[in-house]
C-alpha cells in the first residue's frame, strides 16, 4: 500500500515536457504571426523546446528501474496502446526530433539547419500538432488514472495545456533575454500572452478545485489538502500568488508600460511563472489521494 509511487522525477518530467512543448508553440506563434522584431523570441523558443522535453524524458527514464538497468526493455514501452504511456512514448519520440530540427532550422545551425530551413512551414505545422499532443498528454497521463479520483477529470489536460503555454512562453522569454538583453523591450508585446494564458490557467484551476470539492470524497480530500490542508501554504503561496497573481499583474503593467518596466521585473515575472508551473505539478501529484477502500 504505497500512497504515491511517483515523485520528483515524474513531476520534473511533467513540468519540463509542458514547458518545452509550450516553448515550441510560442516560437511557432512568433514566427508565423509576428513581424521581424519578434524573431528573437521565435529563435529562443525553438532553441529551448527540444532540450527541455528531452531532459524531461530523461527524468522519465531515470524513474524507471528495470527499464533503466536493462535499457533494451524500453522497446516494450509501446506494446500496449491502451496505455497513455505507450502513446506518450510515440508522441515524444516524434516531437523531440522535430523540435530539435526546428531549432536548427530557425537558427540555421550547420548543415542540417540549412537543409531544414527549407521545410520550416511543414515543421511548424506538424511540430505544433505534436507539441499540443505533448503538452496535453502530460495532463491526460494523470487524468486517466482512476486510482486517484482528484486527477480523474477532463479539466486536467486543459489545465496542463494552459500551464504548458504560460511556462513555455516564460522559458522562451528568459532564453531570449539571455541571448540578447536588448530584446526585453520588444518582449513586452508578449506579456499579453501571459495575461491571457495565466487567466485561463487560473480559471481552470479554480474550476478543478471547486468541482473536486463536490465530485467525490477523495477528490474533495485532495482539494482540501490544497486549499486549507497540509499543502495549502505551498498552494496559495507558490502556485496562486507567486505563480499566477504576481506575474499576471506584472505582465499587465509590462504590457501597458511598453518597455518601460525594469528588466529585472520582466525576467522576474517569467521566473515566477516557471516556479508556479513546477509547483502546480508537484502539488497536484502530492495531493493525489486514493479511494477510501476500507
Amino acid at each position: 500500500m504505497q500512497e504515491s509511487a511517483w515523485g520528483w522525477l515524474i513531476i520534473t518530467y511533467l513540468f519540463l515536457a509542458g514547458a518545452g512543448s509550450g516553448a515550441f508553440l510560442a516560437a511557432v506563434a512568433c514566427d508565423l504571426l509576428a513581424p521581424d522584431w519578434s524573431k528573437a523570441l521565435a529563435k529562443a523558443g525553438s532553441l529551448v523546446s527540444g532540450p527541455l522535453v528531452a531532459i524531461g524524458t530523461l527524468c522519465l527514464v531515470l524513474d524507471l528501474e528495470a527499464g533503466l538497468w536493462e535499457p533494451w526493455r524500453q522497446i516494450y514501452l509501446a506494446n500496449n496502446l491502451s496505455s497513455m504511456i505507450a502513446w506518450g512514448v510515440i508522441v515524444l519520440s516524434i516531437f523531440i526530433p522535430i523540435a530539435l530540427l526546428y531549432a536548427a532550422a530557425l537558427n540555421e545551425i550547420g548543415f542540417i539547419g540549412k537543409f531544414a530551413n527549407k521545410y520550416v512551414r511543414p515543421l511548424e505545422i506538424v511540430g505544433s500538432l505534436f507539441a499540443l499532443g505533448t503538452a496535453t498528454y502530460t495532463g491526460v497521463l494523470i487524468a486517466v488514472v482512476n486510482g486517484v479520483p482528484f486527477w480523474n477529470t477532463p479539466l486536467m489536460p486543459v489545465l496542463f495545456l494552459a500551464s504548458a503555454i504560460s511556462t513555455g512562453l516564460a522559458a522562451a522569454m528568459i532564453v531570449a533575454a539571455i541571448i540578447d538583453v536588448a530584446t526585453i523591450k520588444t518582449l513586452s508585446n508578449f506579456a499579453l500572452g501571459h495575461v491571457i494564458f495565466l487567466s485561463v490557467e487560473a480559471l481552470v484551476l479554480m474550476l478543478l478545485v471547486f468541482m473536486s470539492l463536490t465530485r467525490s470524497t477523495e477528490a474533495a480530500y485532495s482539494a482540501n489538502l490544497l486549499i486549507s490542508g497540509l499543502l495549502s501554504p505551498y498552494f496559495w503561496g507558490l502556485v496562486v500568488i507567486l505563480g499566477i497573481v504576481v506575474p499576471f499583474f506584472l505582465s499587465v503593467i509590462e504590457y501597458l508600460e511598453y518597455g518601460e518596466m525594469p528588466k529585472a521585473l520582466v525576467v522576474g515575472a517569467d521566473i515566477l511563472v516557471l516556479i508556479g508551473g513546477m509547483s502546480l505539478r508537484a502539488l497536484i501529484v502530492f495531493s493525489g489521494t486514493p479511494p477510501q477502500i476500507i
Binding site: 524507471l64 528495470a66 533503466l68 514501452l77 497513455m84 488514472v145 486510482g147 486517484v148 486514493p290 479511494p291
Partner: peptide, 16 residues
C-alpha cells in the same frame, strides 16, 4: 518485460 514505470501503481485504486 516490466520496466518499472509505476503507472500501474497510480492506476490501481486499491494501491495494492
Amino acid at each position: 518485460t516490466c520496466v518499472g514505470c509505476k503507472y500501474c501503481m497510480e492506476a490501481c485504486p486499491y494501491k495494492m
